[in-house]
Design a protein around this nucleic acid. Structure first.
Lengths: 203, 203
DNA sequence: GTCTATACGGCGATAGAC
DNA sequence: GTCTATCGCCGTATAGAC
């Protein structure tokens, strides 16, 4: 018992490091065990499978980061401020956590049907309250668009996809790391304004 | 010789089917050989590796579909018409080719450095001529935005990401297949208008 | 070209001893 | 809990008959 949490944590930490360094698929369980300084069998004693370990790490990472996102969506902020804040925080979060981007890619790349099982991934999506707010603003005629699903998918796409095609963008534009960070910094202003524009009633 | 193209084609077709059904990673070369009705050794005779086979299928699929996209980008159409046509054709293409979406996901999920090696993937990105057109319109003061990279990333994100998170969107909205298709059909009108709006000079 | 047969090292997972 | 030893599958490769 005394050593159990310790060992579990060592496996967890070693896996997190390796997943970040080499990606999930290119990291073998033997390598994780080796870096954790334990045996291959122990790896399976604590986490029944590599997939389980992956889920454990992913869940913790998402939970840690998604709380703030949900808090923003469920806040009492006016719609425009809310969009600005949400996009900014979300982009910072993806920018600061390459592992998160890589995990989401790995999950999207997996079988499409079972995405539902990863309940935690829902926390990266819209909340009921935010959907309601959009519908309410629409009824009041304050905004042009009336489909919350389209709006939220637009928002998520503009936030997340650039990180997914990061390598392609960098290659095509001869971007350095700093260039890409500057590109993302500009998006933090640009994306909210574009979304808010799309809501503005026509003059 | 007589049978060679035939066998190569059978392997090609069997692999295409299986990649679509189960995803690239979950399909074994033994399974491909089995479905193609041939032997494991032949599999290695024609394509030296599974990776080679994957690239062959992917390259052919992209080339077949990207020609029209490039033709549109390099056409003499006015900017707004070009955006409408490009988005519509691109969305149709992704809608009709789930394999293409899955392959792009697989590649994005692979090592980020080597994306450059897949030269064919560049054909899914902007052309020089289109970039030039955006810059020219900007100089003439016809459009508000001046950064072609941001615009093109916006466009690609709004087109492609919804297909990547298709399962999530369907789950969160209780969409049937038909519902999702309708959702996409609406996007074919909505996305170009949103992009064109973002270009329109402020009144 | 196509086949059978066999082999290699690496993988994820597990049985069973301690 | 922790270990050793082993299983079955994987991608890849090759030798040799037809």
């Amino acid at each position: 018992m005394a050593k159990s949490r310790n060992t579990e944590q060592k496996i967890f930490d070693a896996a997190t490091e390796l997943f970040l360094e080499k990606g999930v698929d290119r990291t073998s369980v033997r390598e994780i065990a080796s870096r954790a300084g334990i045996n291959l069998a122990l790896m399976n004693y604590y986490f029944r499978s590599k997939e389980n370990l992956f889920y454990a790490i992913f869940t913790r990472l998402v939970q840690k980061n998604s709380e703030e996102l949900i808090r923003i969506l469920d806040s009492d902020l006016p719609l425009n401020d809310k969009v600005r804040q949400y996009v900014g925080v979300y982009i910072d979060m993806l920018s600061d956590n390459p592992l998160l981007v890589s995990f989401v890619m790995a999950i999207l790349h997996r079988s499409r049907e079972r995405i539902t099982e990863m309940k935690v991934i829902s926390s990266l999506y819209a909340t009921e309250q935010f959907t309601k707010q959009l519908l309410d603003e629409g009824k009041k005629g304050n905004i042009r668009r009336t489909d919350p699903t389209q709006f939220f998918v637009d928002m998520l796409s503009l936030i997340a996809f650039p990180f997914a095609i990061r390598a392609l963008v960098m290659d095509k534009n001869n971007f350095s790391e700093a260039d890409f960070q500057e590109f993302i910094r500009i998006r933090k202003k640009h994306v909210p304004e574009m979304l808010i524009d799309s809501l503005r009633p026509r003059s």
